[in-house]
Structures are given as structure tokens and as C-alpha cells.
Amino acid sequence: MRILLATDAWTPQINGVVRTYQRLAEELKLIGSDLVVMGPENFRCVPCPSYPEIGLAMPDRRHCESLIERARPDAIHIATEGPVGWMARAYCKRRRRPFTTSFHTRFADYVSARWPIPESWVYAVQRRFHQRSAGVMVATEGMAADLRRRGFERLLPWTRGVDTALFRPQPVRLFGSGPVFLYAGRVAVEKNIEAFLNLELPGVKVVVGDGPQLAELETRYPAVTFTGVREGQDLARCYASADVFVFPSLTDTFGMVMLEAMACGVPVAAFPVIGPKDLVVPGVSGVLGDDLQAAALGAMALERPRVREAALAFTWQAAAKIFIANIEGALAQVRLREEAAQRRIRMGRASAV
């Protein structure tokens, strides 16, 4: 199967969406499928509001059509609800071509953290975007249940994987003998990082990553170690050097960084919300609680081999197979509905005669 991926998030951006599809593309090749990316690099870009380091694509209709038709895809999957995603959706609508989508980001929470815009308005826009999708892939059952309550339909489960060869326990202590409490991810207001930085914890606090709030937090929390962006083996060594991975976010739909930390044998401390509730096994791979400080301190007592073992259930091979099966199943359902509609039309004409 040749799949065109329409996405507003792609390299050089570093986030869960980009890393998901990069790893998916590698795994799809191993099972005989191909992922062709139509992303921001294919169009003129302008700085994204509140994220000037990210280029916001300004796609034009003719170029978008040309890219899709040259790719000659068997299926079209739209990953994001940005300009590229909307343009690909418009193409499919004009051509009456079915497509699938993914729900990766709770934009309502991100927008409300910056501007006085009701969450219901943002969810209404996202719901409209996904209404025409043959299937909406969602990473966790917790997120799917929330979306069902908000009126989203045709939801399909699609978990993620973790590279357990890269992210593994290592005898390293980059930040001292400990205890070391570490957060990794985008440094932005919607990640609720200050809930971690304000905790009274022994040892060292470390923040790995970049983002629009980095300079502010570096100034306000001089005792915290901010490493900036780390990738690949450098990132894996950061995880392995920690005693507890603290995940303060209340808005993530999945949280791949938790899986990466767990694969390194590092237990997770998080709030009991969507994402952590779906990934963390309480008392085994982490501690969840409304008291994040108590959760972080409690997680220190967990056994690192058992934490690692909990992460091994998430493989990219399984994620790739589910992705393909979701697309095939969704497109098959579209064909069945179209055939049923044609039968009703023929029966109507026959009865009229």
C-alpha cells in the first residue's frame, strides 16, 4: 500500500507527531508499504503564532493537487488539522475520495492556555474537520472516550511503539548521583512544567527540550538544569540518568516520552489523566496521583526492571500493522456504504417502474 501522509508537523520540528510518523515510515517499509509525506517543506511557510520557531505552511490548491496526484497514493491519511491538513481534506472532498485522519493534539487546551477562546469552539472546529474522515485514529481508549462524549465518530484505536534498542537501561549518571527527577518534551505553557518545577524534591531537577517558554523558565528557576534539545543516544542517556520521570502535562493525548523513559527503566510520576492513565501501570511502571510530589517520591521505590518490562508491550511493528489495518478497514466500510446506497437507488428505480 502506498499512503500519502498530509501533515503540518514534520522535520525539523521535534515532537511526538513527527517522531511517530518517522518511526512508522521505517516500520511500514518492512511490511511492504510506503509512506509519502506532504508536509510544510513542500510549501511557503510563515512563523507560527506563539511558536515562531515552527514554520506554518501556506499551501496553495494547485500545488497540493499536483503533489497528491504525482504520488499516486492508494490511500490518504491526514495527521493534523493545520493548513496542510485542511488543504488535503478539501482535495479529497472535491474528488469524493475517502481519507483517514488521526487525533493527535488537544488544541482546545493549547488555545485556551494562550487566548480567551472557549474550548467548545475549538472542539467544534476539530469535530467538523474529522466528520468527513472514514476513520479517526486515536492513541488511547481514554482519549477515545472523551472524544465520543464530544460527538466524534468512527474512532479507531491506534497505539504507539517505543524503540527499546535505543531506549534502554544504561549505567550512566549525567546529572550526578541523584536523586534525579527529569522532564523531557516541549517547553511550553500547555505542558504545565511549572507544576514539576515548583515541587519540593530532593536532589536535582532536569528539563530536557526546547520551546517558547524555555528562556522564561531558565530565568525563573536557576537551580534547575535545562539541557535544551537532546535526540537519539543523547536523549536516551538523559532518560537513563534519571531516577524518576515526572510528566506534569494535563493535555497530552498519549505522551511518547513516558514510554521512552519507561523503556530506560525509569518510573513515571504523573497526574491521573488521559495519557498517563492509559500507559502507566500504577505501582509497577509509575505512580499516578493528584499530589504530584507524593507521586514523584513514591515512584523512586519502584523496581526498574519491572518498569522496563511494562514498556516492552509497545512495539512499532504492532503499531504499523494496526495503522494499515485501520486504513484498509475504514476504506472497506466506505465501499460497503457506497454499494448499499447504489442498491437502494436501483431498488427505488425498479419499484418506480
Rank of each mutant, 00 (worst) to 15 (best):
G55E: 02
L56M: 15
C45F: 01
R95Y: 07
L250F: 05
A299P: 12
L156D: 05
Q233L: 07
R349F: 12
Y239C: 02
L156I: 07
L4G: 05
F167W: 07
R96Y: 13
A240H: 02
V257W: 01
H130M: 08
K191C: 05
L56Y: 09
V334D: 11
D252K: 00
Q13V: 15
P49D: 07
D290W: 15
L336Y: 07
L28K: 10
Y21W: 07
S120D: 12
L199T: 00
P305Y: 12
T227K: 03
L235H: 01
R61Q: 06
S66Y: 13
G135A: 04
A139M: 14
R148P: 10
Q131I: 02
R230P: 00
G135R: 03
Y123P: 06
R237C: 00
D109C: 00
K29N: 01
L302M: 10
I117L: 15
R346M: 11
R173T: 09
A263H: 05
G255R: 11
A88M: 05
V307D: 04
D291E: 03
A350M: 10
D60H: 10
N326H: 11
V138A: 07
R168H: 08
D278I: 12
K277V: 14
A71N: 06
L312D: 06
R70Y: 05
G348Q: 13
V138W: 06
L217P: 09
G135Y: 11
V281H: 01
R127G: 12
Q22V: 03
A240I: 02
G232A: 04
H104E: 05
A295T: 04
V246P: 03
I117A: 13
I54W: 14
E260S: 06
V353Y: 10
M87N: 03
Y21K: 01
D74W: 08
I324V: 15
P171C: 00
E53W: 13
V84Q: 05
A332E: 12
V187I: 14
H77F: 07
M1L: 02
S351W: 14
N192T: 00
L217R: 11
T227Y: 04
F181K: 11
L182G: 01
S112N: 08
V46I: 15
R148H: 13
L67G: 05
G265Y: 06
V208I: 12
R89A: 10
V204L: 09
L147T: 10
G142F: 08
V84M: 04
L35T: 06
L279S: 14
R349K: 14
V246Y: 01
V125R: 11
P222M: 00
E153G: 11
P116A: 09
S351K: 13
A139I: 12
A301F: 11
L182V: 02
D252S: 02
F247H: 14
L217K: 08
A236I: 00
V281E: 10
P282G: 04
A242N: 01
